[in-house]
Design a binder for these strands. Structure first.
Lengths: 333, 333
DNA sequence: ATTGGCACTCAACCATGCCAAGTGCCAATC
DNA sequence: GATTGGCACTTGGCATGGTTGAGTGCCAAT
């Protein structure tokens, strides 16, 4: 495709993102050194419109990039630019004294929101192959049992399950010790065999009760925490000016629901640092029609992303998302 | 105060909440059987305005309740009305099969948002006097230790702390056993004595290392989880029509920050089921100038609340908040 | 292929006039 | 003394209409 047309497309995108107003041939020349006249720009604009990359809101108005236009911009025009020194410093400071993984994610998502001025989201880190450190059973009420699973990676998962009433606390203490002997040190993904072995080692009448708990344990081990999302910067939606914030409502609904976002994440590449951009209709959701998502994988198959109006600063967004994803991935090693 | 004036105030509030437009004497008569003429209503309105309960946006406009007007309405006019049968059923169904406390809160806050069509918030339940069930130490990296505290109530708290490098995993296994012997079964609020006893029982050279961990444990036991808030229905802010949603931004900021909300909760009565209403300037926050909060205590000193425009349906809000706070309190027994 | 010029289009803006809804006040009435 | 009907007055909102400026498409000239 004609490099000048790409250059003009880039200029249009840039101006439109900055001014939020349809950009015409004249004003384009005022801001960019294109080396050609307004008439030439008009001709090229005409062609870009034929190709569906830009669009005219009404006859005598300037041009606005279409989703396809943004896509072409992202794919063929945008170049990643390195973060500024203060930005890199902010990231480093952030990572230095984060204690908890939870704490680390909370800070990351807030930083990402602040740097990009968009809504930021971070998926909980996927559990790598991890061994079980300890299993704890807590009788919370007569027929309620809390099962706690502690992994060597430092993750703690818990679940409350209903159990048959009437068993003494000592019963669960014993069961806990037996379960620990059976599964401690095992991979979370390979619990089936040791658990059945353990059950079969019991006298038949004791099996159903132990099975109740060991099933819960297996389910807990299979839980995918990456089904949760941490979010920050929702207020930035409002900042994004009218047309995008027009119907904030469905947008906030989507953010609260998280379902759409999770589907989105599962559709994305998982390789750490690989940035992926989804624009407007590519998001396949009515409420996200005017939105765009810039996402990247991090750690072992988890994702983080920013969400903003399709009219967003893709260059800055992509650069920041990529940088943060890489830093976090390295840190999680 | 003249009962008819209160009645008129009530009618104004009701109409304004319903129509979102300043209400005049004539239109008031169309909707309410007041038994007097428009002129009389006008005279009373004049008096209500003198008292600062209602306000005229401009000379030839209808009247709008002031914060003080809402306050008087809430204190002297509004009557709690029992929830409808479907609403009560929804609450009961909700509580029946909630496993986790976390899960219970998540459902509660969502239900509250849905029933009232406002933003709903629930503070994490305060820890009653609770005994320690188990302490687990997990060496996550060479100089990082995860401390997990499991209470008999079923609560699980965790924290990662930096420790001196170079200690083998077995060291922490031994330390864990000793700590468990020292604190298991103790009240979380009374850990100081057993921990110092334990430290003093050690040979002097071993003390500093053990102190590192036992300090973290004490800090963890002192953590107040009620410093976290669960939220739902942020999208309802947008639904609340323009004037309130006008500057959604500072509002969303407040919601995300949570600090203002926590301060608010600490200022509120703690007795379960006691509803408290804060209107506009009473919230003492610039961003919440046009907002109102209906809150109630639940459980042991925790709170839940809804937040909406000061022009909200207080009767429904108060009734729902009170009902849910009571149900939850009873359930948590 | 590019450019300057020109006629045309159209949203945004402003001034104007009108209308509906609302008020305050006053004299009459219960 | 409280209530009421009537009336003159106020004012934001809306519809109307003219003007302006930014922008386009097209065409002939370079």
């Amino acid at each position: 495709m004609d490099p000048r047309k790409l250059q003009i497309l880039g200029a249009i995108v840039e101006d439109y993102v900055a001014t939020r107003e349809p950009v015409g041939s004249k004003s384009l020349l005022e801001r960019h050194e294109l080396g050609v006249s307004a008439a030439t720009v008009r001709n090229d604009m005409s062609l870009l419109e034929e190709e569906g990359l830009i669009h005219q809101p009404h006859t005598s108005a300037g041009r606005v990039p279409t989703d396809k236009g943004y896509r072409t911009f992202v794919d063929h025009v945008a170049r990643i630019k390195p973060l500024s020194a203060p930005e890199r410093r902010a990231i480093r400071v952030l990572l230095e004294d984060a204690g908890d993984v939870e704490e680390l994610l909370a800070r990351t998502v807030r930083l990402l929101a602040q740097l990009t001025q968009q809504v930021a989201m971070v998926q909980y880190p996927a559990r790598r192959q991890a061994r079980i450190r300890h299993v704890e059973l807590v009788k919370v009420a007569d027929s309620l049992l809390l099962v706690v699973l502690i992994l060597e990676s430092g993750r703690v998962d818990q679940r409350t399950i209903p159990v048959a009433a009437g068993r003494p606390a000592e019963y669960y203490a014993g069961l806990r010790d037996q379960l620990n002997r059976a599964v401690a040190g095992r991979e979370v993904t390979a619990l089936a065999a040791p658990l059945t072995d353990y059950l079969e080692s019991l006298p038949v009448p004791e099996r159903p009760a132990a099975a109740e708990v060991s099933e819960a344990l297996a389910a807990l081990a299979a839980t995918r925490a990456e089904d949760r999302i941490m979010m920050a910067g929702t207020a930035n939606i409002a900042r994004s000016s009218e047309d995008f914030a027009r119907d904030v409502e469905p947008l906030l609904d989507v953010l609260e629901e998280q379902l759409v976002l999770l589907r989105l994440f599962t559709e994305m590449h998982a390789s750490p640092g690989a940035v992926e951009v989804r624009i407007g209709s590519e998001l396949r959701d009515r409420a996200l029609h005017q939105a765009a998502v810039v996402g990247a994988g991090y750690g072992a198959g988890s994702h983080l992303a920013i969400l903003g109006p399709s009219r967003m600063d893709y260059v800055a967004g992509i650069s920041t998302v990529q940088a943060i994803a890489r830093y976090i991935s390295r840190y999680l090693e």
